[in-house]
Design a binder for these strands. Structure first.
Lengths: 236, 236
DNA sequence: CGCGCCACTTGACGGTTATCAAGGTGGCTA
DNA sequence: TAGCCACCTTGATAACCGTCAAGTGGCGCG
């Protein structure tokens, strides 16, 4: 709920974009008293697939990766959650164990709210439930769209699409006014995210460079022709 | 809400499996008074992609197909909704236009409940909202799983998986005790549903027949070896 | 400094699948 | 019955992509 440990929910920068914007002052005070803010290093985890769901996590800053084990036991990245997003709420609402593992991708501050508190707030304030409903609707649509994309678009098109999504969240202009991203995830994770092999991702990246759309140096991406790139996403 | 036009919600066979099982008698009476049951021929539509959302539809009997237009303007089948399921509720909850077209696949009876009524019931009974939440969660999980399948399994495996789903809903034993399905959809729709071309579906069906798993005659499927078929779904 | 480790890249190959094209079948109307 | 049309099948071909394998480069560590 707050950018600094022990900070107040009332000062939290993401308060108005998270589910908790439905709460009134009294409820927010309750939340503020029982929430457990904590700072995490990259590589650590909030919970593991199969764990019991003891509560939910609100991302204040940083980036969380949601992973699932595939049939071969490999851990594959399923989605990313940034500031203002709530993690683990679907398992909470379903009253089931966690279906996935939540891994810290970037140094993050995350507030934990234990189950009983969320339940109390949900009973007190129906609007909070509606906020969760909205969030779930958004998730469902996102998965629907991605399913649609994965059977319609090629790997390269999906890569460009992902780059645009990441650009919206992590993009910036460098000193020369060029559009840039510092990718928060590895190529392997990119591969998992769009449902392709790491080799194909590597080749797709080469193709994107050959076409002069962008330059890749490690995790740094420099866009050369954002208009042409966006244009490639249109035709389908 | 009812198997016969003008019938009562109280006697509806799907009442206990639909969202409306959350309602008490008074609320059900309200619903019963304002709902509009209607019989539809195959090929007609409940609403079109882009239409305003004026309410939600509860499937009493028959089968509804949800279609979306792809980039080329082709209408592709996205999912099927059977008795007890509610159609168009996500657009309603999101207060947005319909993202897809709902087409009648089999002769169906569908009850329309207009927006104001649903809103009233939602305000009166928080449990109804939770039911919708559950449904949305299920939708999200389904698309998550299908996304996973579509990048993991071959077309033939996905076809077998779809056949099992359809068997659960439309399967029966014929006079010889053989497991059968009368497919409710065309091969083109099967193709769209699992994300493949119609030609590949046709070839996959041939392969399934060559392996002695099932016989296809038009839309009639006769299973030859259900155990072996299920076994092929396991390995993952 | 050398070593190993890991992520990434690149090449070669093969399998799966889409695409294009040419029949075939069944249902419908005239 | 003929003719048409939509749907389905079958064949040939090529594109896409996954897999296996070898090589590169960065980075920490002894």
């Amino acid at each position: 709920m707050t950018g600094e440990l022990g900070g107040s929910c009332f000062g939290c920068q993401v308060r108005h974009t998270s589910e908790w914007c439905a709460l009134n002052d009294a409820e927010l005070t309750l939340l503020n008293n029982v929430k457990v803010p904590k700072s995490y290093e990259a590589g650590t985890t909030l919970f593991h697939q199969g764990d019991d769901c003891d509560g939910i996590y609100c991302v204040s800053s940083g980036l969380i990766g949601i992973r699932r084990l595939d049939a071969d036991g490999n851990s594959t990245l399923v989605r990313l959650c940034g500031p203002g997003e709530t993690v683990g709420y679907r398992s909470f609402l379903k009253k089931s164990g966690h279906r996935s593992t939540a891994e810290i991708m970037l140094p993050s501050v995350v507030c934990f709210v234990r189950r009983a508190t969320v339940r109390t707030l949900l009973e007190q304030n129906p609007n909070l439930g509606l906020r969760f409903l909205d969030h779930t609707l958004k998730d469902a649509e996102e998965f629907e769209d991605r399913h649609f994309e994965s059977v319609t678009l090629t790997v390269k098109a999906r890569l460009l699409s992902l780059l645009m999504v990441l650009y919206e969240r992590f993009g910036y202009l460098n000193e020369n006014g060029e559009s840039m991203i510092d990718l928060p995830i590895s190529r392997q994770d990119i591969a998992a995210l769009i449902g392709a092999s790491p080799e194909t991702i590597s080749r797709s990246i080469s193709a994107v460079q050959d076409e002069g759309l962008a330059q890749f140096k490690g995790r740094e991406v420099r866009f050369r022709n954002l208009d042409a790139l966006i244009e490639q996403l249109r035709p389908a």
